[in-house]
């Protein structure tokens, strides 16, 4: 299926936070047009991985290639052309609260292109229409509900017609119905623009709906990679634990508990 070059390639990525190792040798290839879901429990390092992929923080070692260019070696200035072709949907929407919804969507077009203001207005309306927010361009972000904010943020992230769209927990903090709406929207956008979409999440329902492939992250490394069905039928204990929602066994040891209370600090 994928005999072409990957659009995004991660090689031996390692990150430390102080002394603690967060990511431990991540290798992953993502191909154009696919929806890759990075799945994992809280604190497994998936948000850190995403921050590296969009160039917000640098790892300890390893390489990240976007369209063949190692973005870790790039300076902020050299990174600009790549940034213009990637979109990012933040967990909390991260709309600029001092600007109207329309200005939020239009900002990148105004700053990065030489388009006429009238063209930008039309493009802004089109983008807002695609996420079902037509007529909301003069609203301020504070006047929108949580789901609408996410939609507006999605419109902003696709304003420059990105090749790759990153989503950080797209359904976090939304009720199931609104969440499924966002998932559907992501699917719709993928079909319409043939975008590569990388979603970081822990919502199984969402994964089943949108993912082409899943990378399951645990303890800083990828423990399973494959389609939804492949992972569901995997005999890896941790994969099964995740998909069947089995809690961690309670490891209760009287002596070690006592020690932890009275031991040296």
């Amino acid at each position: 299926m994928h005999n072409n070059e990957p659009i995004l390639k991660i090689e031996n990525l390692e990150t430390h936070y102080g002394q603690r190792k967060i990511l431990d040798g991540i290798n992953l290839e993502i191909f154009a047009g696919e929806t890759m879901t990075i799945l994992g429990r809280s604190g497994c390092g998936k948000s850190t991985l995403l921050r590296h992929l969009i160039g917000l923080s640098k790892p300890t070692s390893g390489k990240i290639y976007i369209k063949g260019q190692d973005i870790i070696a790039l300076s902020e200035e050299q990174m600009l052309p790549i940034r213009r072709k990637i979109g990012m949907l933040f967990q909390g929407a991260a709309l600029f609260n001092s600007m109207s919804v329309g200005d939020n969507v239009a900002l990148a077009l105004r700053e990065h292109t030489n388009l006429e203001e009238s063209t930008i207005k039309i493009m802004t309306r089109m983008k807002l229409d695609q996420v079902g927010l037509s007529g909301f361009e003069d609203f301020m972000p504070s006047q929108l509900s949580g789901g609408m904010k996410k939609r507006a943020a999605l419109a902003r992230s696709i304003a420059m017609d990105p090749d790759i769209l990153f989503c950080d927990e797209p359904s976090a903090g939304l009720d199931p119905i609104v969440a499924v709406g966002i998932d559907q929207l992501i699917l719709k956008l993928k079909k319409a623009f043939n975008m590569t979409i990388i979603v970081v999440t822990h919502e199984l329902a969402s994964v089943a709906m949108i993912a082409d492939r899943i990378a399951l992250l645990d303890g800083g490394s990828i423990i399973a990679l494959g389609t939804v069905d492949e992972l569901k039928n995997s005999d890896n204990e941790k994969v099964q634990q995740f998909f069947n929602r089995i809690p961690d066994p309670e490891d209760y040891n009287r002596e070690s508990y006592l020690n932890s209370l009275i031991g040296d600090w």
Partner: peptide, 21 residues
């Protein structure tokens, strides 16, 4: 306060990913 609130709301990160300094 303004810049701090923007930092907390990930707005600063959003600016950076959109290619703005």
């Amino acid at each position: 306060a303004e810049i701090g609130t923007m930092k907390v709301n990930e707005e600063i990160d959003a600016l950076k990913t959109m290619g703005f300094n």
